[in-house]
Design a protein around this nucleic acid. Sequence first.
DNA 1: CAGTGGTCTAGACCACTGA
DNA 2: CAGTGGTCTAGACCACTGC
Lengths: 257, 257
Amino acid sequence: MPVFSSRLEAASPDAAGLASSPRYVQVARTLESAIERGEYQPGNALPAERELAVRLGVSRVTVRQAIAQLAVRGLVVRRHGSGTFVAPSGPPVRIQHPLSRLTSFTEDMHSRGLSAGGRVLSFAAGHPSAQDAMKLNLSPGQQIYRVRRLRTAGGEALAVEESLLNAGRLGPLSAGDVQDVSLYALLQARGVGPVRALRQLRAVNADDELAGLLGVPVGAALLATERLAWDAAGQPVELARAHYRGDRYDFVMELRD
Amino acid sequence: MPVFSSRLEAASPDAAGLASSPRYVQVARTLESAIERGEYQPGNALPAERELAVRLGVSRVTVRQAIAQLAVRGLVVRRHGSGTFVAPSGPPVRIQHPLSRLTSFTEDMHSRGLSAGGRVLSFAAGHPSAQDAMKLNLSPGQQIYRVRRLRTAGGEALAVEESLLNAGRLGPLSAGDVQDVSLYALLQARGVGPVRALRQLRAVNADDELAGLLGVPVGAALLATERLAWDAAGQPVELARAHYRGDRYDFVMELRD
DNA sequence: CAGTGGTCTAGACCACTGA
DNA sequence: CAGTGGTCTAGACCACTGC
């Protein structure tokens, strides 16, 4: 077990005007480089927060602030009641989602031999917001279905997806209809399968709800997408918003001149 | 100025087994809904942390923990010495980057009437890591150039981009060569312009270095991309890694069946 | 049960902003 | 200069884990 020699740079009162960073940043860097040097092996626990505080000559709050930075970046994983562990090394298993083709989550997982799972978080009929109505080419009074699902692969939560469906084009729908089957398969079966879509990607921080559903720390980076899909008749059929775990999901695409 | 009626749910000791969330989450929600109700207008300051602490009957640390959540999600902006302000409302100006075509940052900004700026953070000749060598189809001993640039538009930092260039295919390069001109223009001029590329997108949290360069809070969500580009001869010429501000940058693309 | 991370407090000082 | 956010402390109790 490594011993931290000095109490950080306690005795170096930034002599030559060297910008001395806050203690918690120094602590974070100290821990990070110790991990990189292999002094703490992947899967092993770091010393307890209280012990680190004593060793480094700082308060526990400062240690926690430092570890929080490493945790949100995925270098370490905290387990309540157990310890703080160095994250499993190497590039973690990442889902490579091809972005150029119009595929569903379900198909996509199957095509790479993973069991696509899911759970319907909520299903309801309702009305679109003004903005969403515009996107779906509806008037705000027309009906939509709203399906919110948690997508999993290999038993692990990967994404939260919310779909708004044009009820008028789709016909009656009940909660049971969206339980097991792929939404895309359902749309196809009803003759309004999407043939074209526009997709936007951005990065956002997880709020506490998404964090809870996906099993990541609050603030963890998520890949957020919004996808608007049209059927063969050129009518919008689905507006889908999804949040993918940033540490598990890659979108890949090919570009040409 | 709104007054918070109760001291949170101090007097409701989760009677029916209602999961009572931590105080800082409650504080965050209290503030968030006050903002949504318009009690604090965009651009205006929130009450000072010390005052919120008194009003809500919690310690200042707890208030700070709550505000930190809102800050990383972009709802509020903290200004040291001045105050905490509700973020400018509405959808902020977001750069919409079309992902389907092979364009450079410079071209891309120009095409939408923005002045593309930039600053070279570092330029050096060197050798690729084992992994990067494989991607560039080089042996680890062969030479590469490494250019790190801060990209700006409208005077605001938008992205940090690091390019690894195959020195053998490119010929001699000096720091001056990459100063003002677009890298793509440079490659084209030397006859190794990229005609095909593979691009990966993911979401990561900003470490303190990227946060500092981009002017966002540590932990803010960034869109990270890696792009490997080939020239007409089918040889890899560039491996580029970029980090875009999640709150300013959208990637957009069209999908077909 | 002991040991761990999770939350919270009261109070202190520093660094920065703006009148 | 007063007021603000930024950092830090010492100590407390809770909630969870695993022996």
